[in-house]
Computed example of a mutant assay.
Amino acid sequence: MCRPAGQGVGRVAMQHALKGGHGVALWHLGSHPDRACLPECDTLHARVEKFLETLGSLAELPDRLRRVRQDISEQRGDSAWAEPLALLYDDPRRPLPDEDTEPVDAPL
C-alpha cells in the first residue's frame, strides 16, 4: 500500500485488511497526496511486486526485508526503494499474548 496506514485512505484500507483477516501488509510510511498517486507509487508497486516474486513463502518476508534494510544501512545495492516500507506480519506460530500479561518482548 503506497499510503500511510495511520491516516486518511491508508488508515481505512489498513482497517479493512485487518478486519478481513489479512496477516501480512507492506505499506509506505511517507506522505501521499489525498487524491492521486505519484509516479513514485508506480515505482514502489513494481519494486515490491518484484521483491515478493522472489519469496519462496511469506514466512521468509520478515527476514528478507531485514536483509534489504541492512543493505540500505550499509549503502549496498539498489535497496533505497525499501527504506520507507513498514511491515505488518502476524505470524500464526506466535499468537499474541493475553491482554493482562507483562510487556511483550520484540520477536527474535
Rank of each mutant, 00 (worst) to 15 (best):
D90F: 13
M14T: 06
S31R: 09
W27P: 00
P92V: 02
P97L: 05
M1Y: 11
S31M: 06
D98W: 13
R3A: 11
R94Y: 04
P62G: 01
T101V: 04
S57E: 06
A13L: 09
P107C: 04
P92M: 04
E49C: 12
L108C: 07
H22I: 14
R11N: 13
H16N: 12
D105K: 04
P4A: 12
L65W: 00
A82K: 01
E74G: 10
P62T: 01
D105F: 10
V104N: 01
E49M: 11
P39E: 04
D34K: 10
Y89K: 00
H22E: 10
R47E: 05
V24W: 02
Q7P: 05
K19V: 15
G21V: 08
A80D: 12
R69N: 06
R11K: 12
Y89A: 01
D98M: 07
I72A: 03
R67E: 11
S57G: 13
R67A: 12
L58K: 04
L38G: 11
L38R: 12
S73C: 09
H22S: 13
D90M: 14
A86S: 06
A5R: 02
P4W: 10
L44D: 11
V9P: 13
M14S: 13
C37G: 15
P62F: 00
Q70C: 09
E83Q: 12
L85R: 00
E53H: 06
A25W: 07
A106E: 13
E40R: 09
S57K: 07
L108F: 08
G10Q: 01
E83M: 11
P92S: 07
A80I: 11
G8R: 13
C41A: 15
S31V: 05
L38Q: 12
S31Y: 10
A17L: 15
A46I: 02
P62N: 00
M14D: 13
P107Q: 02
G30N: 04
R3L: 10
